[in-house]
Design a protein around this nucleic acid. Structure first.
Lengths: 209, 209
DNA sequence: ACCTGAACACCGTTCAAGT
DNA sequence: ACCTGAACACCGTTCAAGT
């Protein structure tokens, strides 16, 4: 049975789970797939293209099952939570997604769906994309750090001997918080911003009537 | 004249500017500094530690000059803008900062200052760290993409032949927008969220009186 | 069409030995 | 204390040649 593009992606994601992004090499992937490293280059132009396909497979989970109907903010939050979960499902998943410019089909579709949710709610089209990108940066950034599991001791043993002030404890306490709760909190911060602007846009529309 | 730790960082940042993060190798850095690649390891445990020092030098620019007095939101926005500018000042600067767990002295100090601005404004200490981290993810994520300069054509030539819908144009239009304006917009989204929570916290305080 | 074998041009890191 | 020289154990990618 010959190797297909999809098989390479599947094997690469399995290797990612066992060896992490830094351990994901073309040679090891070849060994797992039963081909030489060079053979992979028949299916993918280079490693970057493979990583792009991996990212799209991960992000594709977001639009796999249809979104439950409901208010726009709940639907957007659901997309964000799905993306986080999809990235958490693979070791270094967030780094893989972050490292690729998401022009793969699934990712584009997910972004379009998010834009539609905003515009359907009355949000101006020319700003919807900005909001979605801002949210994407937050979701990916948060999840990268979650997966980095920055060793709990790092903030304490930061050497420099800086005073153990209240602000410092507030910062170091962040990593001890429940990641899910913290994720939802930051997301709400962004959604609040959208709500403020949505209310302003609607007030303006009412004014004109 | 012998090499000092700071000289290595300076040379590494210069090499970063000319060759980018992927071109930053210990051998090339050694050549630029006039030493063998192995010699650098006397000053830094490994490449990661060097990148951490580079990140701290970049981020350190944020707290170099004191912040002008003013309302909390203007001060926080100023910090965010400074961090963006500091990262933009070096090729791949945002990727360098993103790739390191920021426990270096300058970065910690910057974070503490940001927390203090929030708590001075009446924001609860136990959530201030969450806000700062959320903002950090946004700032770094935005700037990484800015520096990636994702080739303007990417969204158009995305092959799959997806329909050229309105949502799709909203997404692809993002990269044509003025990055500075877009950056400020997303930041305001987050600050709106903080304002909403600040107002709620103050209302609760007034209630009790 | 799909892959092998082998090479090319690199990497980060270590470490005895030098000064 | 600070660095050299040389090696170790890898990389991604290319490409003639095989089937």
């Amino acid at each position: 049975m010959q190797l297909k593009r999809a098989d390479v992606v599947t094997g690469a994601l399995a290797l990612l789970d066992t060896d992490g992004l830094d351990g994901l090499t073309m040679r090891k992937l070849g060994a797992r797939l039963g081909v030489q490293a060079g053979g992979i280059y028949w299916h993918f132009k280079n490693k970057e293209a493979l990583l792009g396909a991996m990212a799209d497979r991960i992000a594709g989970q977001v639009i796999e099952t249809p979104l439950a109907p409901g208010p726009w903010d709940a639907r957007l939050a659901e997309i964000a939570h799905r993306l986080r979960r999809a990235m958490l499902a693979h070791r270094d998943g967030a780094r893989v997604v972050a490292g690729t410019y998401v022009v793969e089909p699934n990712t584009v579709r997910g972004g379009e769906q998010a834009v539609r949710i905003l515009t359907d709610a009355g949000f101006p089209l020319d700003r919807a994309g900005w909001v979605i990108f801002a949210a994407l940066y937050y979701v990916v950034g948060h999840t990268i750090e979650e997966q980095a599991q920055l060793a709990a001791g790092d903030w304490e043993q930061r050497g420099a001997g800086l005073p153990d002030t209240e602000p410092h404890r507030a910062l170091s306490g962040v990593i001890e918080a429940d990641p899910e709760e913290r994720f939802a909190y930051g997301l709400e911060l962004l959604l609040d911003g959208v709500r403020v602007r949505l209310a302003a846009a609607q007030a303006q529309r009412t004014e004109r009537t």
